[in-house]
Structures are given as structure tokens and as C-alpha cells.
Amino acid sequence: MKTYILPSLKLSGILLIICSALYPLFIAAMALVAPGGGNGKKVFENDQVVGYDNIGQKFTNDDYFQGRPSAVNYNAAGSAGSNKGGSNSDYLTIVQARIDTFLVHNPGIKKSTIPSDLVTASGSGLDPHISVKGANIQVPRIAKLRKREEEVLYSLVKKCTEHPLLGVFGPERVNVLKLNLALNAL
């Protein structure tokens, strides 16, 4: 074993420089020409930073489109899911309460049309998206509060819908922050 210790030590030292210093520095340097410069892509409203384009935000006011429940309250200092099992009765009580609350805030909506993503917490607690159904179902509420035609908001959701990759891979979804920015800009 002794014959290998010194060479191993030297080899590890050299690899440490290559893999832990040169490699990340190279990626960081390349990132300077990427959108956001390697700091994450920010979004602006009237030249003010209002967030990162793929970090979800909390919207509690009824005149905004709202995102999904979050286990970290949308504070991206950390990230986590609820880790609740599907058979956990405390958890199911919480989901039922979310459905009831949603129905109170969105009168006239049929319960069978509420998509599951609106009442379940995401894996990261920072999910920036909701399903297209999840956006459309909130339109009547927001139209009423903002005194807009529902048709205008439906077409806004349509405009903000992100399509599957190359039109064929993955789900359709709506970025809540970008949708709300578009809503403010109406």
C-alpha cells in the first residue's frame, strides 16, 4: 500500500486543480456569453428586477394568476417538496382544504375541472409553471376583479402558453410570473 500512497496523493492534487478549479472556471467563463451571464435569467418590469424567469413566486392576491402550493413558501433560499405519501390522511385533509378554498375564491367553477397541479405541492417548492387548464380555470375570477373581458384573458393565456419542445416532446404549461407580467401590461 505504501508504494501507492505518494503517487496517489500527487495525482489527487493535480486532479483537484483540473476538476475543481479549471473546469468550473472554464464553465463560468463560457457562461459570460450565456443569457443572464451565468447568474440566472432575470425578468424585469419597468426596468425593475422582479424575479428569475424560472423561479416560481407566491401570488396570494385574487387578481393575479396563482401558482402551485409550495413546501418552502416560494423562498428560493432553500428548496423542497412536501414529501407526503399519497395515503397519508393528514396530507389528504390538506388537499381537501385546498380544493375547498379554491372553490370559495372561484365561485361558479365546477369541482371536476380543477386540475391536480393546482392543489398539490411541487417537487422543488419553486415550480414556476401551472398547467394550461390551471391558468384557464382562474380566468373568470381575474376577469371579474380586473374588469376585463374573459375572452381577452383566455387569449392572453394562449399567448403565454409554452409549447412542448419542438412541438412534440413534453407537456404544455404556463409560466405564472410571465403570465402575470403580461396581465399587468394589458
Partner: peptide, 20 residues
């Protein structure tokens, strides 16, 4: 158990998952 509550689960079981 959530299907029994009467909502739309066509998107699948979304607890702990990301919409994208």
C-alpha cells in the same frame, strides 16, 4: 384518494412533481 375528492387528475399524480 384525490380522484375521490372529485377533481381533474388527467395530469397525473402531481404531488412532488414539476409541471414542466
Amino acid at each position: 384518494a384525490i380522484t375521490k375528492m372529485g377533481i381533474d387528475q388527467s395530469g397525473g399524480s402531481m404531488e412532488g412533481k414539476e409541471v414542466r
